[in-house]
Design a protein around this nucleic acid. Structure first.
Lengths: 142, 142
DNA sequence: CCTCAAAATTGTAATTATTCCAATTACCGC
DNA sequence: GCGGTAATTGGAATAATTACAATTTTGAGG
């Protein structure tokens, strides 16, 4: 019995259906590309990763699929700095650490109490659906 | 005696000099545009705002000036969502609230203890120079 | 199973945001 | 004032994304 398997692919078709959308091979392959390597790839990087498996897919479709996945709340779209959007299939509450030297991005788990305290800074009347926290700096040089 | 005037223009020339850079009319006018209206304009919006005052300025120069100001730590560059970068002359620790309906962005003051707790989530070895916090949702409908 | 309509994909063109670059202009120290 | 460096300018080039029209796929209903 696995206590937690929160981002197993389990619910792609289900989530799509829930939004009145169809499941397609393209959406599956794009979603699995994000699950397989959690390094926050750009649309272009996803494109090159899925092409071996599905050479007929087009870049436009990759963009479309990513947008669809974001709308279904299966994927987070991440933007720091100029440059292309990046995509993240980690649905646990987490912050991002962006290494300024290497450009790499790491997920940092975010305890509920910290998230709660951050939300607490909002004056009444502000209703936040999501909170994004990003660090910029240097990651361990190990 | 004014207790706090933390982002009066006071230090533009000084900050530039500190980085070995020159002060120029273009940099002044761009910086003042950001101070005057704190609504997180894009480079293009800054361009249209400063043109009445300095019709000869070019968009490339606006980009250059903004980049310079960011390097001098007088201005923060802000990116959430796809789309053009936005610029912010508020140097107090603050988060951003992005209203998903109107697209407007509001500054939310960030108490030091909250900032400290957020930094606390970083595993040892991670050295964060800056932290960015962005809320997405709906702002007061007043 | 066949057909039909809606949805999705595809390739390409268009748009948007930003950067690059070469030529001029402005500035500061001597 | 002169010379060298820095900054600005306009326009071309690039990068990222979106738009669009044509084709393909899908699933529902008969």
């Amino acid at each position: 019995m696995r206590p937690e398997t929160p981002e197993t692919p389990a619910n792609l078709a289900e989530r799509l259906a829930h939004s009145g959308l169809r499941n397609t091979p393209q959406r599956e392959v794009v979603y699995h590309a994000l699950l397989d390597r959690r390094d926050h790839p750009t649309a272009d990087e996803v494109y090159t990763r899925v092409r071996p498996e599905m050479p007929s897919i087009s870049l436009a479709t990759v963009y479309n699929c990513l947008e669809t996945l974001v709308q279904c709340d299966l994927v987070r779209q991440v933007n720091f700095e100029r440059g292309p959007s990046r995509y993240c299939a980690n649905l646990h509450p987490h912050a991002h650490f962006h290494d300024e030297k290497t450009g790499a991005t790491y997920d940092i788990p975010l305890p509920p109490e910290v998230l709660a305290q951050v939300r607490g800074v909002l004056p009444s009347g502000y209703d936040a659906k999501t909170v994004e926290i990003t660090f910029h700096g240097q990651s361990p040089t190990a």
